[in-house]
Write a protein that binds this DNA or RNA. Sequence first.
DNA 1: CCCATTTCCGAAGAATGTTCGGAAGTGTGC
DNA 2: GCACACTTCCGAACATTCTTCGGAAATGGG
Lengths: 158, 158
Amino acid sequence: MHLDRTDFAILRELRKNARLPNKTLAERLGVAPSTALERVRRLRAAGAIQGFHAEIDPRAVGIGLQAMISVRLARHARGDVDAFHAYLLTLREVLSFYHVAGANDYLVHVAVRDSDHLRDFALDAFTTRPEVAHIETSLIFSFRRNPDLPVYRDADEP
Amino acid sequence: MHLDRTDFAILRELRKNARLPNKTLAERLGVAPSTALERVRRLRAAGAIQGFHAEIDPRAVGIGLQAMISVRLARHARGDVDAFHAYLLTLREVLSFYHVAGANDYLVHVAVRDSDHLRDFALDAFTTRPEVAHIETSLIFSFRRNPDLPVYRDADEP
DNA sequence: CCCATTTCCGAAGAATGTTCGGAAGTGTGC
DNA sequence: GCACACTTCCGAACATTCTTCGGAAATGGG
């Protein structure tokens, strides 16, 4: 798909604020609202915009503790990896996860009530699983997201 | 702050879809649109909702490679940590980062054009810094986010 | 049981979202 | 350089939603 500088500007703006009114967005782009609307719709359809999410304060919902669990699998066949992917998504304590290269295979970001919950969850969800060879848990003190989106592609259209 | 089950439902819905129309949201909650609007406004003001963000496909903006860089600091005084926090936010390649307990102090999620860019970035942004004692880079094969929000607090109001 | 306080609702006005036909721009082949 | 096909863009009109606000309903102490 061919994106121009207007598309990149849309992605930047909506990454910062997904609820930016279309009219305001259009003004910042220097195009008509109908044009901005059509652009956003196309970006969604093309998959460049994958979704819109609210960021929630963990404390508000009783999440007292977050951790990053590094997971090493016993086998690394395609099927094992896919199955583990799907399994992770069924765990409500899992906020997100990274499949990485290196000594560990997965970095799993989990949110729990307290340290008891973390211990129980680590044991039940990972340690007892046969495909999991090893886990290592690190408490998360804080998490920050960069509101700015890096754009490396050239603006190949005016 | 006191949240009831309606508030929790709002947080769940907006985490899944930040652009859910207020009218639709109100229908799902079983309240009037004006009520839903006031609730959302209050949740934002109270900080329970920290923001709304579009999720962008990295490939669309020329991000060919993502990596998790584990960083170990030389000193761990409050000032050092705060300064490193602020520094990370100035780097456009940084999408997000975790401050963690354990052998490593930071997990930094970075997005770059290619492996050359990654090497240059790791050297320039981390290795040459005096407060950085050690780094370790892991390529990210894939990243997934769980659309569901875990809610551990009881619904203490009807 | 009553009063103070908070929350909720519904209607109306303001603002935005959305559609669509035509204009303007773009690129290609002749 | 021109004509044609094609794509993109715009602006006005309509539909829908957002937002406000006064009053009703619910809540919780005393």
